[in-house]
Nucleic acid binder design. Structure first.
Lengths: 152, 152
DNA sequence: ATAAAACTGGATATTCAGATCCAGATATGC
DNA sequence: GCATATCTGGATCTGAATATCCAGTTTTAT
């Protein structure tokens, strides 16, 4: 339901949570499995939204502009492709302009619900979840709970 | 967030709720403000999903296959473009196959939330809402509550 | 200084949802 | 039966999202 671009942006931000050093677009692309040339565009959007900082030149790359606890999923979504809320009647009916009809009200309520969920979810909270499968990591958490794949 | 096609399908079903007679694709297109030739395709999808019945020939057209109280928003969505739930790790990481990582879990939870909302909303319930702006109708409800547009 | 590393931004290519078109099939009224 | 109305389904067109490419700019290491 969300666009591919949003998925890419979220992967990039999650990958950047490892704050060892600046990640080059190329290295990030490998880690996130996103086409490198396209990821560059996505990173530019994230930079414009002040979610990541770009550093050119040797040893350059991208880092998060804020701690993961200060970045919500919604911010990332909005940086690349904001959820299009229904503001006015899609049919252009004047009478519906101020107050949406019940059909579009219902749809927009669903969008609002998603926005709210994303607005209250930080990247930090996602990374803090006790889930054996860590985002972007092929390996199970080291020393973590048992591997459900091999437990039979 | 939902596709244009879903919006069109919902408009068509709501329009068909007026059960006077069979609506031709052409008449429906006018009422719903959907490109006629494209609406035909959408109606075909709805027919394949057994939500509407098609009748060819003179005096033919489309009618709902079930009462509006038996048609949910989700059924209409699924007929034309099901919400793509995240079943397996989008990165193809084997370790995430059975259990999504926390990132994709979060996203899929949002999708599930929308699905649930749509599954519990029938077309009848939408039409029953006490909303002065009726779906697809340019006019305010006759004899209804005061017109907010002219109340100043 | 210079070369190499890395982002930037514009131009272009590809893909797919959205939209159109039309010949064929089917039903009805006369 | 025949003409007309209407859906059906395949072929095609269009435009926006996705993806690629590359020349230009900035930065750093040496």
């Amino acid at each position: 339901m969300l666009s591919q671009t949003v998925e890419y942006a979220l992967r990039a931000v999650v990958a950047l949570a490892e704050p060892d050093t600046a990640w080059t677009a190329h290295a990030l692309a490998a880690k996130t499995q996103v086409p490198a040339s396209y990821l560059s565009k996505v990173l530019q959007s994230l930079a414009k939204a002040d979610l990541v900082l770009a550093q050119r030149g040797r040893n350059g790359g991208f880092i998060l502009a804020k701690p993961t606890s200060a970045i919500t999923v919604l911010e990332v979504v909005n940086a690349v492709e904001p959820i299009e809320r229904i503001q006015t009647c899609p049919l252009g009916l004047a009478a519906h302009g101020v107050r949406l009809c019940s059909l579009h009200r219902k749809l927009d309520d669903a969008y609002a619900m998603v926005e709210r969920a994303f607005a209250t979810t930080t990247i930090a909270s996602i990374l803090a979840e006790p889930n054996p499968a860590r985002p972007l990591c092929a390996q199970q958490e080291k020393g973590g709970s048992l591997n459900v794949l091999h437990a039979h």
